[in-house]
Nucleic acid binder design. Structure first.
Lengths: 218, 218
DNA sequence: GCCATCCTGGCACCAAGTGCCAGGATGGCA
DNA sequence: TGCCATCCTGGCACTTGGTGCCAGGATGGC
């Protein structure tokens, strides 16, 4: 199967070299301040070739993120049938964690950069949107309700939102906090009822309409 | 106070004219397929002036979104002190609803465009990130816990995620569904316990754990 | 009527991407 | 060993969004 030609080796090596050089420049002088021409010059390849290896400057940092999304989806697909959707998603996230949020030190700088650079955030969200598309149908399988698809969308959205919240806190903690713990705390924060009255009202609002009138109130 | 000079009038009128012309082109041939030069030519102004009125092509559609965010923040600030954060946020959203998600027909096309165009989605998320920054401290006020800030982040994130889910469904329904109803259903979907076992485990993870010691666990 | 202020257009410029084409390295095959 | 298809590369030209700069015209207070 693995017939590695000289091209393949060269390609992998060059791709790695570009990534290394680019990351060094990014960390050193910032993402937006680093131009593709600079990267190209450092590595010693042509501008045109760079864009053959990476579709965009952002892809140098976000390239393998799609693969990570696939890993989560694969892990989710293997969860047992009757499992609670939250548990299934959490397990899938953890299963893909070795490549999702481990890595020791230098990743903090990268993470902070993604956190602070608009164009990186934008691409990140874009990739994550594809995760969502893959995750929603797989999650719907864990929900028995007439509107399983809708419920699944809401849950997947909330889960990814919790991942975000956890990431933010993780970065704020200088990478010292534990990601899984932060995630669990975020989920707890949104799922724990804060007042009984509210819980009662929301339960009543549930499946059936409940709205329409509130819309008019606005 | 309102000393409207000829400049002001001209500015407002021109801005509106640009918006109208641009939207027409966008709807007609798509957002990405429409170039700034085309817009400029239709309106009869210079390219340079266009970018004086709108910081980017996307801003033509997303320009007033920051104002909407401010409206939500203002509404949230006026909520009574002891109120449940979810209720407060919902009320704030509804209070700002007249400019947040009313508008009858043509908005569906715009909404769908925002939903489908990557660069628009990106800017949208960017704007919404500013909402978050404004909303989190205002929400923390409604939470009494040692980690109110973190909890508030999680809740605001989840609420906006629900708005997203609702928007998606609203678009999917061709604008026929009721936004407030969809939002409530999304919140219910993520806050309703699906299995008791999971609830117990999550509750155990809860409140304490501010930071620090769990870091070692990682 | 004079002058500061504001807005405009036009120019040059930068950075990210893309399409196209010629040329060189690679590897299968005779 | 030589031949040929394949793949990759570099370079060029081009498009698009966006910005800095500067000269010139309209506006409005005095």
């Amino acid at each position: 199967m693995a017939k590695l030609t000289a091209w393949d080796r060269q390609r992998v090596a060059l791709r790695a070299e570009i990534t290394t050089a680019a990351c060094a420049l990014f960390v050193q002088q910032g993402f937006e301040e680093t131009t593709v021409d600079q990267i190209v010059e450092t590595v010693g390849i042509s501008r045109r070739s760079f864009f053959r290896y990476f579709g965009s400057k952002e892809d140098v940092l976000l390239g393998d993120l799609s693969a990570r999304g696939d890993a989560v989806a694969r892990a989710l697909a293997e969860r047992p049938d009757g499992e609670d959707p939250w548990d299934a998603l959490r397990a899938a996230l953890v299963a893909a964690a070795p490549e999702t949020f481990s890595d020791p030190v230098a990743d903090l700088a990268i993470a902070r950069m993604m956190h602070e650079t608009p164009s990186l955030r934008a691409r990140l969200f874009e990739k994550r949107r594809h995760w969502t598309d893959a995750l929603v149908p797989l999650t719907a399988r864990h929900i028995d309700a007439p509107d399983a698809q809708f419920t699944a969308s809401a849950i997947v959205g909330a889960v990814l939102s919790c991942v975000d919240t956890a990431s933010d806190a993780w970065i704020a903690s200088e990478g010292k906090a534990d990601m899984a713990d932060l995630y669990d705390r975020a989920v707890t924060a949104i799922r724990t009822p804060r007042r009984q009255a509210a819980a009662g009202e929301e339960a009543a609002a549930g499946q059936e309409a409940a709205a329409g009138k509130e819309a008019a109130a606005g």
